[in-house]
């Protein structure tokens, strides 16, 4: 089962239109759960970085993770595609399933997990290659058979970059502006037909105009992809996401900081009537 076929079979055009109309309306509509997280924790060596996270991430929604600096939002995000595997000493525990399969099961191919669950990083980081080769990188390493340029064109089109770069595909990716580079990185992630796209503060290095283009793009991509975004920008979370998870930091008596999930709900609810006073404090700017 490929991610693409999954996407196509799951959602009707009507649903897509509804998603775009209003975040809140669709929040209660039945939706497949992509990630089921049950009391997950991340340790770096003897230090617990994130603890007690329990939430469900629904298909074809944008889930935002917000919270003050150092609350473990990025660390948690990186659990979802096993990116923490590369950090020496990092250990993930608790229940984490992806479409019902244990993400950390002993027989799971982590590379395949990461192909299905793409990631876009804080700073635009194209490979030192041409624009074309950047997008084609993923299909190539996954031994894509068929018309590579069609895949590249389709990915760039979905990332709303095609018109800007179609005449300079052979040029270095570094020739693009920061915002274009970030969209190139999104196109690069799309080219391997992922199911989920994780975005780790994708707009923090961009100016407001570029940010708004990326946000528009995310809303458009929601039709076909499940998106999880970490952001420190509350307005951004409010603008684009369907559900929001609020993380905060506990400091123990030795000064060690551990991130915790405080509240997870529809974005509307979080921003209008949060049930936890810490959420409210953060939303209204009293701390964080």
């Amino acid at each position: 089962m490929t991610a693409t076929s999954l996407n196509e079979s799951q959602m009707t055009p009507t649903n897509v239109a509804a998603v775009n109309e209003s975040n809140a309306d669709l929040a209660d509509a039945p939706s497949e759960i992509v990630f089921e997280v049950r009391d997950a924790a991340v340790d770096y060596g003897s230090q617990r970085a994130v603890d007690g996270v329990t939430l469900d991430i629904a298909s074809r929604e944008i889930t935002a993770i917000i919270g003050p600096s150092g609350c473990g939002k990025s660390t948690f995000l990186r659990c979802l595609n096993r990116m923490n595997d590369f950090i020496p000493g990092a250990k993930v525990s608790g229940g984490l399933t992806y479409h019902g399969e244990d993400l950390y099961g002993s027989k799971v191919d982590a590379a395949e997990v990461r192909r299905r669950i793409g990631m876009v990083f804080q700073r635009p980081n194209p490979f030192p290659k041409s624009i074309f080769d950047n997008v084609a990188y993923g299909p190539r390493i996954n031994r894509h058979k068929g018309d590579l340029s069609a895949v590249v064109e389709s990915a760039l089109t979905r990332a709303a970059l095609w018109d800007e770069v179609k005449d300079k595909l052979k040029k270095s990716a570094f020739a693009l502006s920061g915002g274009q580079q970030q969209r190139l990185c999104i196109a690069r992630a799309l080219a391997v037909s992922p199911d989920v796209i994780l975005m780790d503060e994708p707009c923090s290095a961009l100016d407001p105009i570029a940010t708004s283009r990326i946000e528009d793009l995310m809303v458009g991509l929601k039709r076909d992809y499940t998106i999880v975004i970490v952001t420190h920008n509350m307005q951004q979370a409010a603008r684009v996401s369907d559900r929001t998870a609020f993380f905060t930091t506990d400091v123990d008596d030795r000064g060690a900081r551990t991130g915790r999930l405080v509240e997870f709900d529809h974005t509307n609810t979080i921003f209008t009537s949060p049930s936890d006073s810490r959420t409210e404090g953060y939303i209204t700017g009293r701390f964080g």
């Binding site: 590369f86 590379a111 395949e112 990461r114 980081n125 990188y137 996954n142």
Partner: peptide
Amino acid sequence: VPRELRESAYALGGR
């Protein structure tokens, strides 16, 4: 070489 560059490649299913 930035860590993100490697991670981007890993995020595409790279080994």
